[in-house]
Computed example of a mutant assay.
Amino acid sequence: MRARIRAGDREAFAALYEEYARTVYNHAFRLTGDWSAAEEVMSDTFLAAWRTRHQVEPEGDSLRPWLLGIATNKARNANRGTGRRLAFLARRPAPEPVADIADTTAGRIDDTRRLAAVQQVLGRLRRQEREVLALCVWSGLDYAQAAEALGVPVGTVRSRLSRARTRLRRLTEEQLGRAPGASGGEPRSGRGEVESRAAFVALPIQEEAR
């Protein structure tokens, strides 16, 4: 697959899109908190992937870290107006009741508002901390894959994730009006997923099937 992508094989690239479009879209949504922005980020990601296909390493396993790395960079650009957007979402009134035939729309509104609430806390983290949480907790990349996606050493991923977990736990407890509790341990060996309630508060967001 890597050789075919590097060679510009359009059928191979179409297969790559079919396999990872949903993953890229969901990652973009988690970083931007906006359905339309996620669509744009996904499109830009695969366009950039096609243009830079010659940069794919000849050896390796999954191409997911490469794609999520591109998507993370595209989401950074999309998030330049994050502060204004989140402030707007925080002021939005509760959505009007939706007819039964619009269950899908109602689900989207609910998911967007829930993610906006989560991002009120996540927004107080540093950008690098949010990105490593999205890659390791939400997308399930291990340390090495996250390091590949972000273009940083594995040790940097570990330290960022550790700081992000600590700060996210503290900020969430402040948000909930509780006294800080005991800190958790390191993620399981070889995985970036964490077990703290603060980190998993964001997980129930409904993913978009593509």
Rank of each mutant, 00 (worst) to 15 (best):
residue 22 R to H: 04
residue 26 N to F: 02
residue 133 L to G: 00
residue 197 R to L: 12
residue 146 A to W: 04
residue 112 T to E: 10
residue 175 Q to N: 11
residue 133 L to N: 02
residue 205 I to S: 12
residue 136 C to F: 03
residue 162 S to Q: 13
residue 56 V to N: 05
residue 173 E to H: 07
residue 38 A to P: 04
residue 135 L to I: 06
residue 27 H to T: 10
residue 195 E to D: 11
residue 57 E to I: 01
residue 25 Y to H: 14
residue 61 D to M: 06
residue 205 I to F: 10
residue 1 M to R: 05
residue 65 P to D: 09
residue 36 S to Q: 07
residue 58 P to W: 06
residue 183 S to P: 05
residue 110 D to P: 00
residue 110 D to R: 11
residue 178 R to E: 15
residue 62 S to L: 09
residue 134 A to Y: 01
residue 99 A to F: 02
residue 195 E to L: 11
residue 176 L to A: 15
residue 15 A to Q: 14
residue 60 G to S: 04
residue 67 L to N: 08
residue 64 R to N: 01
residue 108 R to C: 04
residue 89 L to T: 02
residue 115 L to C: 12
residue 102 A to P: 00
residue 109 I to E: 13
residue 161 L to F: 01
residue 4 R to E: 12
residue 26 N to H: 03
residue 25 Y to G: 04
residue 47 L to V: 15
residue 198 A to G: 14
residue 111 D to M: 04
residue 166 T to N: 03
residue 160 R to S: 12
residue 145 Q to D: 15
residue 9 D to V: 10
residue 50 W to H: 11
residue 186 E to Q: 14
residue 159 S to P: 00
residue 6 R to C: 02
residue 112 T to C: 05
residue 47 L to N: 09
residue 50 W to S: 10
residue 11 E to L: 14
residue 48 A to G: 00
residue 168 L to I: 11
residue 100 D to A: 14
residue 202 A to Y: 08
residue 37 A to H: 01
residue 114 R to A: 02
residue 55 Q to C: 04
residue 62 S to C: 07
residue 110 D to A: 14
residue 37 A to W: 01
residue 27 H to F: 09
residue 85 R to Q: 09
residue 41 V to K: 04
residue 84 R to M: 15
residue 21 A to F: 02
residue 82 T to K: 14
residue 133 L to K: 04
residue 184 G to S: 11
residue 129 E to Q: 10
residue 113 R to E: 06
residue 90 A to L: 10
residue 200 F to N: 13
residue 142 D to C: 04
residue 125 L to W: 01
residue 47 L to G: 10
residue 127 R to N: 02
residue 31 L to W: 00
residue 196 S to T: 15
residue 88 F to S: 14
residue 75 A to M: 10
residue 139 S to G: 00
residue 141 L to S: 08
residue 196 S to N: 02
residue 50 W to V: 07
residue 87 A to G: 11
residue 150 L to D: 01
residue 158 R to Q: 12
residue 106 A to T: 03
residue 134 A to K: 08
residue 130 R to Y: 02
residue 60 G to L: 06
residue 85 R to C: 03
residue 140 G to W: 00
residue 202 A to K: 04
residue 28 A to K: 03
residue 101 I to T: 10
residue 191 R to P: 01
residue 177 G to K: 07
residue 17 Y to K: 00
residue 65 P to V: 10
residue 206 Q to R: 15
residue 188 R to D: 15
residue 77 N to R: 14
residue 170 R to N: 13
residue 106 A to V: 03
residue 139 S to Y: 01
residue 60 G to P: 06
residue 188 R to K: 14
residue 112 T to F: 01
residue 106 A to C: 09
residue 55 Q to K: 11
residue 14 A to Y: 08
residue 100 D to N: 08
residue 63 L to N: 12
residue 63 L to F: 11
residue 111 D to N: 08
residue 163 R to T: 02
residue 207 E to I: 03
residue 173 E to W: 05
residue 124 R to S: 00
residue 149 A to T: 04
residue 23 T to Y: 00
residue 198 A to C: 03
residue 5 I to Q: 00
residue 40 E to F: 01
residue 135 L to G: 09
residue 101 I to A: 13
residue 173 E to N: 05
residue 132 V to D: 03
residue 108 R to M: 10
residue 74 K to Q: 15
residue 77 N to T: 13
residue 22 R to I: 00
residue 116 A to W: 04
residue 53 R to V: 06
residue 194 V to A: 10
residue 127 R to D: 14
residue 48 A to C: 03
residue 204 P to G: 09
residue 208 E to Y: 11
residue 66 W to T: 15
residue 82 T to Y: 12
residue 205 I to D: 10
residue 200 F to M: 14
